[in-house]
Design a protein around this nucleic acid. Sequence first.
DNA 1: ACAATTTGACCCAA
DNA 2: TTGGGTCAAATTGT
Length: 313
Amino acid sequence: MEMMNWEQRNLLNELIHGLKAAKQLQASPSPSPSTSSLTMEMKETLLHNIVSSLEKAILMLNGSTTQHIPTTELALDLLANPGKVPESPASITESLRSEELFDVGSKDCNLSSKKRKMLPKWTEQVRISPERGLEGPHDGVFSWRKYGQKDILGAKYPRSYYRCTFRNTQYCWATKQVQRSDGDPTIFEVTYRGTHTCSQGIPPPKIQETKPNHTVAVNYQNNVDNLRTNLTVRTNGLEASTFSFPVTSPFYTYESINGGTLCHVGSSAPSDFTGLISTNTSTGSSPIFDVDFHFDPTAEINTGFPTFLHNSI
DNA sequence: ACAATTTGACCCAA
DNA sequence: TTGGGTCAAATTGT
C-alpha cells in the first residue's frame, strides 16, 4: 500500500467500494420483492453506489483520454432488464465506444432524450424554519450551478434547475431540481437525477493551488465501511462566499486548526446541510426565497458524514 | 477577468 | 400545441 501513489489508492478505494456494494447486492437473494431482505430502494441505492464507484474509477483511469465508458448506461440497462444478460461482449464493446454520455462537444450531448430518463432519480424534502434552521438531508460537499428556472403550471413557486458545477470539466451529469411546496412554503422538494461522478470530495490530481484561502482540505471518512480515508479535497470556495445561512447552522462545530477550521459535520444528525437563502426579486410575484440546498445522496446510506478542514475566508 | 446567476428562447415528449 | 427541461446571451457578483 505504501508503494501506491495517491491516485492509485483512490482508484483502489473506489473499486473496493463498488465491489462491496455489488457483493451486498449479490448476497441478497430476491425471489420476490416481499421476501427479499433488501428493499427495492436499498437495492437501487446499492446499485447507485456501484455505478458511482465504477464511474469514478473509470474516470480516474480514463479521464484524460477521449475514450470514455458509459457505465451508467450499462448498469441502468441492467436495472431496467434485471433478467437479461447484456448481449455479447462485442456489443458491449460497441456501446462502450460511444461518446454519448461524455462528449460535451456535441450540441445536445444525447443525454437529453431517453438517456436522461434512465438516470437514477430520487426526491428529498427539506424544511426551512427561522427557529430550527434547515432540516432534512442535504449535501455540504457537492456544489451546484443553477442553469434555469421555470414557472410550473399550477405551482405557486417557480422550479429551479441545477447541475453539477463540474459538468464540463469532469463530465459529471448529476442534476437537481428544487421546488418549493405549495402547501407548506417552508418545505422544498429537491429532486436529484444522476449520481455524482466528479471528484468533489476527491481532489483533482496535479492541479496547482491558486487560491489557498479558498481551498478546503477534507478528511473524508465513510463511517459505514471506512473505505475512503484521508482524501484531500479542494472545493471552489464558493459555498462560503456565495452561500450563507439565515441562521447559524446548528449542525456544524468548528475548531481552529493550522489557520484553518476543522468542521465536524453532523455525527449526531445525518441531516445537516449547507444552503443559501436569497431574496428573489426577479419575478413579478411576491418576494420569495429561493433555497439552494447542497445534499449528498449518500448521506442517507452512510450513517455518518465527513469531517473536513475548512479554511475560513 | 473570471465565474455564477438570470431569464427569454429553444427543444422535444406527451 | 403545451408544458417541462435546457441552453446561452446578458447581467451580476467576486
